[in-house]
């Protein structure tokens, strides 16, 4: 056993660094853009762009999600903040589910990873939109006057100044007063803090993917990866455990692309931004159980259904 580890340790380092080097640039772009939104663009301005009608809001939420380069850790607090300011719940859910999957950074990363198999990219985007619209549509039934958010410790559901778990000390009103250089430095400092927070999950995911690739013979991976149902369930479980940031999860999925069925790869790419240990905890922590549980359950069911359809009928 020790000999095996000693023999394969250099390969483990090579594979780990390979994923890490390829994924980190996308994470850097993601944290830089979310920092711009955090420091430069105010929530009020974001709200002005979103319609108030529930059905139009749902479509608008998905459309904004397609344009906003945010991973799931950025979208959950923003969606909560918008709901607390009166945005219809379907619009928030549409944004919440669409943004991490179809935003420009995620799409570019998925293209880079799967450029030799563009079906994966096309299906990820189209199914991502379809699932966001379908699950968001279910929340059209949610009564408008029924509270959707958990009450914060201050008793104010709108108290959402700190969108992320780390305390970076940014203050927009102060930022407006200070010079352009100081704001730029604030932006870069915020990006560095954000990088440290999110990279922890990326490193964990890279390590698990590397261990599986180096120590598990490909023949064994193939034997479990080709079953249409089992492969999907395994990849969904892997996505939840790894909790990779959506802007880089395509590179982790790539590790399994030669051994797992296409539906399983898509299940990983679709469920990862919605239900992983990180985003799932955020959704459960910010929304009331009556919203969070149906949201997570229907999203999971929709991804499972889509992945099985692909494995059995399409690819």
């Amino acid at each position: 056993m020790f000999d095996l580890v000693q023999q394969r340790l250099p390969d483990l380092i090579t594979v780990f660094l390979g994923i890490f080097l390829e994924a980190t640039p996308f994470l850097l772009v993601g944290v830089l853009v979310s920092s711009v939104l955090e420091i430069v663009v105010s929530e009020d301005r974001l709200l002005r762009w979103l319609p108030r009608n529930a059905l139009v809001g749902l479509l608008g939420g998905v459309a904004v999600g397609a344009a906003a380069p945010l991973c799931e850790c950025g979208t959950v607090p923003i969606a909560r903040s918008c709901v607390s300011k009166g945005l219809p719940l379907p619009a928030a859910v549409g944004f919440l589910l669409a943004a991490p999957v179809i935003n420009p950074v995620t799409v570019t990363a998925t293209y880079t990873a799967f450029h030799s198999n563009l079906q994966i990219l096309v299906l990820r985007v189209t199914l991502g939109i379809a699932i966001a619209l379908a699950v968001g549509g279910l929340f059209l039934l949610w009564p408008r006057d029924e509270p959707a958010l958990r009450v914060s410790r201050t008793g104010d559901p709108a108290d959402s100044h700190h969108r992320h778990e780390h305390d970076h000390g940014c203050d927009q009103s102060r930022a407006k007063r200070v010079s352009l250089l100081a704001r730029l430095l604030d932006l870069l400092h915020h990006s560095a803090s954000e990088l440290s927070s999110l990279a922890v999950y990326l490193i964990g995911a890279c390590l698990v993917a590397s261990l599986l690739q180096v120590f598990l013979p490909r023949t064994q991976l193939l034997s479990i990866g080709q079953g249409p149902l089992l492969s999907v369930l395994i990849m969904m479980a892997v996505a939840v455990i790894l909790s990779t940031c959506s802007s880089v999860d395509a590179f982790v999925a790539l590790a399994f692309s030669t051994t797992f069925a296409p539906g399983a790869i898509l299940a990983f790419l679709l469920i990862s931004p919605v239900l992983n240990l990180k985003s799932g905890a955020l959704v459960l922590g910010l929304f009331r159980p009556g919203v969070a549980m149906p949201l997570l359950a229907t999203s999971t069911a929709a991804v499972l259904l889509a992945a099985l359809s692909i494995n059995y009928h399409l690819l």
Partner: peptide, 9 residues
């Protein structure tokens, strides 16, 4: 290698 060594065949 298509993208990085993790997808090596």
């Amino acid at each position: 290698v298509t993208c990085c060594v993790v997808d090596a065949s």
